[in-house]
Amino acid sequence: SKICLVCGDEASGCHYGVVTCGSCKVFFKRAVEGQHNYLCAGRNDCIIDKIRRKNCPACRLQKCLQAGMNLGARKS
Rank of each mutant, 00 (worst) to 15 (best):
residue 1 S to P: 05
residue 2 K to I: 10
residue 3 I to Y: 11
residue 3 I to N: 12
residue 3 I to M: 04
residue 4 C to M: 00
residue 4 C to H: 01
residue 5 L to Q: 15
residue 5 L to P: 08
residue 5 L to E: 08
residue 6 V to F: 00
residue 7 C to R: 00
residue 8 G to Y: 03
residue 8 G to D: 07
residue 8 G to I: 02
residue 10 E to H: 15
residue 10 E to G: 15
residue 10 E to P: 06
residue 11 A to E: 12
residue 11 A to Q: 11
residue 12 S to N: 15
residue 12 S to D: 03
residue 12 S to V: 06
residue 15 H to Q: 05
residue 15 H to E: 11
residue 15 H to G: 13
residue 15 H to P: 08
residue 15 H to L: 07
residue 16 Y to V: 14
residue 18 V to G: 06
residue 19 V to I: 07
residue 20 T to K: 01
residue 20 T to Y: 07
residue 20 T to A: 08
residue 20 T to D: 02
residue 21 C to Y: 01
residue 23 S to I: 02
residue 24 C to G: 00
residue 25 K to A: 08
residue 25 K to H: 05
residue 25 K to R: 09
residue 26 V to Q: 13
residue 27 F to P: 01
residue 28 F to D: 01
residue 28 F to M: 06
residue 28 F to N: 01
residue 29 K to R: 12
residue 29 K to P: 08
residue 30 R to Y: 05
residue 31 A to V: 15
residue 31 A to L: 02
residue 31 A to H: 02
residue 32 V to S: 12
residue 32 V to Q: 12
residue 33 E to D: 10
residue 33 E to A: 03
residue 33 E to V: 12
residue 34 G to K: 06
residue 34 G to N: 15
residue 35 Q to N: 09
residue 35 Q to A: 09
residue 35 Q to G: 11
residue 36 H to G: 12
residue 37 N to G: 09
residue 37 N to S: 10
residue 37 N to I: 09
residue 38 Y to W: 10
residue 38 Y to M: 06
residue 38 Y to T: 10
residue 39 L to P: 08
residue 40 C to Y: 01
residue 41 A to T: 10
residue 41 A to S: 08
residue 41 A to W: 05
residue 42 G to F: 10
residue 42 G to S: 14
residue 43 R to E: 13
residue 44 N to E: 10
residue 45 D to M: 09
residue 45 D to V: 08
residue 46 C to V: 01
residue 47 I to F: 12
residue 48 I to H: 04
residue 49 D to M: 03
residue 51 I to N: 06
residue 52 R to V: 06
residue 53 R to F: 09
residue 53 R to E: 15
residue 54 K to R: 07
residue 54 K to Q: 08
residue 55 N to P: 05
residue 55 N to W: 07
residue 55 N to L: 12
residue 57 P to Y: 08
residue 57 P to G: 09
residue 57 P to M: 14
residue 59 C to G: 00
residue 59 C to L: 01
residue 62 Q to H: 13
residue 62 Q to W: 09
residue 62 Q to T: 09
residue 63 K to N: 09
residue 63 K to V: 06
residue 64 C to R: 00
residue 64 C to Q: 03
residue 64 C to L: 02
residue 65 L to W: 11
residue 66 Q to P: 01
residue 67 A to H: 11
residue 68 G to Y: 01
residue 68 G to L: 02
residue 68 G to K: 03
residue 68 G to C: 03
residue 70 N to Y: 13
residue 72 G to K: 10
residue 75 K to W: 13
residue 75 K to C: 10
residue 76 S to Q: 07
residue 76 S to V: 04
residue 76 S to G: 08
